[in-house]
């Protein structure tokens, strides 16, 4: 570890006010993201997992600077993006690119693929027109597309190809970090692994860091170094991948894994599938947000919000009554 991490998120909070009710009554707000904190080092992958609606996408967008946070900050290479003047913030964004979930929505239907992939270069005024062309062709080859396809429009491509285009757009400016918001979920399973392998190869070749937002634990298992589990806008567990899969500490993580069998990780963990509905993020329950569904809930869980604490073994857990720690942890738990 050499001083400042690539990305450091501190207490990031974002609430969305709901529309006013009929004739001016305020209808409340959605607690989309509450006090998210983590760090991500150069060249590594952090997976942000959770059920849909848990605030993953909000987190990704707030980190990318698309939403102004209500509290907290995002330090990218040691500087707070929100505090930077416009020009500097634009420069900082060069090194942080985003890949979106929906490859049909994230490409402007009125631009050619070449224009889409080359847009970051135009925005950041990189090179001459010819140099940009060459770079676009290069990066398109890099993601397995034919550079001649640059003349065509997005609607002429399949979902997998479109996601490759989106990845090419993110790569063209040679960023250090790619924030990928569910980049696979809109794709067919067979295409998913292709795109995933592409991202892994690119990471190895270019030393990219990934903030990978997903609900798919199988993907997490093959790609992530560390895993952050979110529930109802809050971080409930943050742990190295192997440790998390071997011994989830938060009951929610455990139920999540029980619900989704992960290939190669043996049979389903004996545990209960979460009972009941996810509570509304508009009126989160008092205490731990998971307590209404938690098999290990104690009376204190109903009253007091647990803090995220270091369990001494490399995991951070926010739970009053965590699952027992593993009896044995293999040395060098991170790859």
């Amino acid at each position: 570890m050499n001083g400042t991490p690539l990305l450091r998120v501190e207490g990031l909070t974002r609430h969305f006010p709901l529309g006013h009710g009929l004739f001016g009554r305020r209808a409340g707000r959605v607690h989309a993201l509450t006090e998210l904190s983590f760090t991500l080092a150069t060249g590594r992958t952090l997976a942000l997992v959770g059920e849909s609606g848990c605030g993953k996408t909000t987190a990704a967008r707030a980190i990318a600077g698309l939403y102004r946070p209500d509290a907290g900050r995002v330090l990218f290479k040691g500087s707070d993006l929100a505090g930077l003047p416009r020009r500097a913030r634009k420069d900082a964004r060069r090194a942080m690119q985003m890949v979106f979930q929906d490859p049909f929505g994230s490409l402007n239907p009125r631009l050619t693929v070449g224009a889409i992939v080359g847009e970051p270069l135009v925005i950041h005024r990189v090179g001459t027109r010819a140099e940009r062309r060459a770079r676009v062709d290069d990066v398109m080859r890099g993601v397995g597309l034919d550079p001649r396809d640059g003349q065509r429009y997005p609607h002429e491509f399949s979902g997998g190809q479109r996601q490759r285009i989106a990845i090419a757009r993110a790569l063209v400016i040679e960023p250090d970090l790619i924030i990928a918001d569910e980049p696979l979920s809109a794709l067919d399973v067979s295409i998913q692994s292709q795109v995933l392998n592409l991202m892994k190869d690119l990471q190895e070749a270019r030393g990219l860091a990934f903030l990978f937002i997903t609900h798919d634990l199988a993907v997490v298992d093959t790609f992530a170094d560390e895993v952050a589990v979110m529930y109802l806008g809050r971080l409930v567990e943050l742990a190295p991948r192997d440790r998390l899969f071997a011994a989830p500490r938060h009951p929610y993580t455990r139920t999540l894994m029980a619900a989704v069998p992960v290939p190669g990780r043996g049979k389903r963990a004996p545990g209960s599938i979460p009972a009941g509905e996810v509570p509304s993020p508009i009126t989160p329950p008092p205490g731990c947000p998971f307590h209404p569904r938690c098999p290990r809930a104690l009376p204190v869980c109903r009253a007091e919000m647990p803090e995220l604490e270091d369990d001494g073994g490399g995991s951070f857990v926010a739970c009053h009554n965590p699952e027992p720690p593993p009896a044995f942890m293999p040395a060098g738990n991170i790859r």
Partner: peptide, 16 residues
């Protein structure tokens, strides 16, 4: 739509 967010995330200004 996401392509607008994508351009914003990339640093495109309002005029663009």
């Amino acid at each position: 739509r996401e392509f607008v967010l994508a351009a914003t995330a990339c640093g495109a200004g309002p005029l663009r």
